[in-house]
Design a protein around this nucleic acid. Sequence first.
DNA 1: TTCTTATACATTAGATTCTTATGTATTGTT
DNA 2: AACAATACATAAGAATCTAATGTATAAGAA
Lengths: 112, 112
Amino acid sequence: MGNQKLYKGSLQTIILKLLETNDKMYGYEITQKVKELTKGELKITEGALYPALHKLEADGLLDVEVAKVGNRLRKYYKLTESGTKETANKLDEMQEFLRTMQQLVNPKLSLE
Amino acid sequence: MGNQKLYKGSLQTIILKLLETNDKMYGYEITQKVKELTKGELKITEGALYPALHKLEADGLLDVEVAKVGNRLRKYYKLTESGTKETANKLDEMQEFLRTMQQLVNPKLSLE
DNA sequence: TTCTTATACATTAGATTCTTATGTATTGTT
DNA sequence: AACAATACATAAGAATCTAATGTATAAGAA
């Protein structure tokens, strides 16, 4: 597993992107999906995830809907209208960041 | 200027990469070079840069050499042997991170 | 000549974001 | 019966940054 600290700052964007693609997801599902998509390279910890979800909700980017499955609860999160807009912004910023970093660390590959 | 917080965690790698390419550089020069290379997208602040340089030196990855230019001093930093190895590691980790993030936020572009 | 900007180092307070540890409870597997 | 997985959550502390401040020299503009 690579350098986890590089992912610092990108958690919100990852969550928003997943919700854009999958419509609605619950917390534990997000951790599993990220592990699967990144083949174990990135593991979202609960201590990072839940506060991040709560903040996105408090900022009005996510709506929550509590569901009961068997006897256990799940909190399904979904993008609000404002969350959809913010997702587009954050994805643009992420692409610019990725281009910039690629150019910095490997100028040869970015001649296109 | 994009989302500065995405760069959190990548400063060490950036410094090491610049020193790999340019052999030796001083602090202020690094800030200017990064601004130039990223067309203003990334601005390294002194409060981030100097502690980072001191840490890399304390960790034995950089050697420092003080030079006097006119009446002003410059501290030239240079990779040690161990610093050269660590640079290769960190660049590998960065490439893996960039691939992973690209795949997460834009799966379409990563079909290759 | 005086004022401002650039060069060049540095530290500190505070914010943000994470990791690690801990806690509670249900459900599935051995 | 015990353990792993599912599902939520918080809290202490670490790491890394931003913004502000400080010192000093050099260069350029007014």
